[in-house]
Nucleic acid binder design. Structure first.
Lengths: 202, 202
DNA sequence: TAGATTGTTAATCGATTAACAATC
DNA sequence: TAGATTGTTAATCGATTAACAATC
C-alpha cells in the first residue's frame, strides 16, 4: 500500500468516484476524467497513480478496476456507522440526507438533550445524551457529527471522544479542541456563506 | 484600497472577526489572535496588514478599528439579501439557521416547486419557482442558495443566473457550470463526510 | 512502426513560515 | 533607552503544471 495520499488528493477522490459511477465504457482515460471534472490531466493522472495500480498506455484505465481502487482508498467498501448529536433542524436534515450512504456512511442514531424515548427521524432513533457512550461502544462507532448550538459544542465533542469517536464533523460555529489522533472537520456554514459573499465583493 | 486579498486569507477573515467580537480589551496583538485560533503569528499579521490599516508596535491593534476593518473587508457592514431554492429539509434548516445574520447575510425568501402561497418557514415566505426571477430583480438579490436534488440543480442554477444572481452556494452533490463572473461555492456534504472518513483511514 | 496515453522528474506557482528591520 | 510588537523581505514548503521518457 502507498503510505501517504495528500489531503488535497484525498479531497478529489470522491469526485472521481462519483464521475466514474456514470461511466459505462470499459476503459476511461485521464483526459476524459479531467475534462468532465474541470481538472488538469496530469493532476488526475497523478492522483490516480496514487490510489490505483496501473493504467495502460493507449487504452487508459479499466473503469471497473479504477472504481474499485477508489472505493478501497475511500473506505467505501465497508459501511461505516456514524452518530449525530443535536437533533434540531440541521441535525434532522442531515439524518434525512440521502447522499451519505453512497459513500458507505450511515448515521445510525442521533442523540439529543431533549429526547423522549419514542422519537424517530427518517427511521432512525433519537436517544437521550446519557446513552451516547454506551451506544458508541456497543456499535463500535468511530464517527460523530455535531449539530448542537455553539455553547454546547465543546462539551458534546468531549463526550464523543470519551465514547471512542475518532473523527468529528463539526457544524457548530466554534473551533473545537480535539486530542491528537482525532480527525476534525469543520463545516462552519455561516463562515462559508460569508466567504462566498466576500468572493463576490473582491 | 488594496487590490487583491488572496482566497486563503479571505477564508480566515470571518474567524478573526468572530474571535474579535468576544474581545473586550482596547488593544489586541497578533500573537493573541494567533494563539486563540491556532494559527501562526506571522500569518495573522500578514492577513491583518492586508485588510486593516496599521497596528502599532508595542501596543498591537485597536480592537474596535480592527473589527471595523474586517467587517468592511467582508462586506458585513451592509445587510445582503439572499434567496434559497429548494425548501426541503436541508433548505428549511438553513432558513432557520441563526448564524447568517451575524455576517450581514439574510435569506429573505425561498422558492420551491411545491409551494402553496401560504407557506412560511422561520417567518420567511416560500414562493413557487415562477416568481423567482421577478423577486430577485425587484429585491436586487445577488446571492442564491441551491438545496434541490442533484437532477434539478443545474436547471435551478441557470434560472438563478438568469435572475441576476452573482454568487451561488451549491449544496447539491453536482458540479455546476456557471459563467465567468459568477462566484460558485460548493458544499458537498456527502463528499465532506467521505473526506473525513478517509482522513480517519489514512 | 506510429500514435496514444501513462507515469515521473523538473519547473512553477501560491501560501506559509522564518528572519529581521522598523518603530512606538 | 530597552522591550515589545508590527510589517516586510527572503526561505521553505506543498501542490500543481509542464516537459518528457516509457510503453502498450
Amino acid at each position: 500500500m502507498q503510505s501517504a495520499i495528500s489531503r488535497a488528493t484525498l479531497g478529489r477522490l470522491p469526485a472521481y468516484l462519483q464521475y466514474l459511477e456514470n461511466v459505462t465504457s470499459e476503459h476511461i482515460s485521464s483526459a476524459a476524467v479531467a475534462r468532465a471534472l474541470g481538472l488538469g490531466e496530469v493532476l488526475v493522472r497523478k492522483d490516480l497513480s496514487l490510489v490505483c495500480g496501473k493504467g495502460k498506455p493507449k487504452t487508459g484505465y479499466v473503469t471497473e478496476a479504477l472504481r474499485a481502487s477508489l472505493k478501497a482508498a475511500l473506505g467505501v467498501d465497508r459501511v461505516t456507522p456514524a452518530v449525530l448529536v443535536g437533533a434540531g433542524k440541521l441535525g434532522t436534515a442531515l439524518m434525512d440526507y440521502k447522499g451519505f450512504s453512497y459513500y458507505g456512511m450511515d448515521i445510525i442514531a442521533a442523540f439529543d438533550k431533549n429526547a423522549d424515548s419514542s422519537r424517530e427521524v427518517s427511521g432512525k432513533p433519537v436517544y437521550p445524551m446519557e446513552q451516547l457512550r454506551r451506544f458508541c461502544q456497543i456499535h463500535d462507532v468511530k464517527i460523530g457529527i455535531i449539530t448542537v448550538p455553539a455553547d454546547a459544542a465543546q462539551s458534546v465533542c468531549d463526550q464523543l471522544i470519551a465514547s471512542g469517536i475518532e473523527a468529528v464533523w463539526n457544524f457548530s460555529p466554534v473551533r473545537l479542541n480535539v486530542p491528537d489522533g482525532v480527525a476534525l472537520q469543520n463545516e462552519n456554514l455561516a463562515l462559508s456563506l460569508a466567504h462566498l459573499h466576500s468572493m463576490q465583493i473582491n
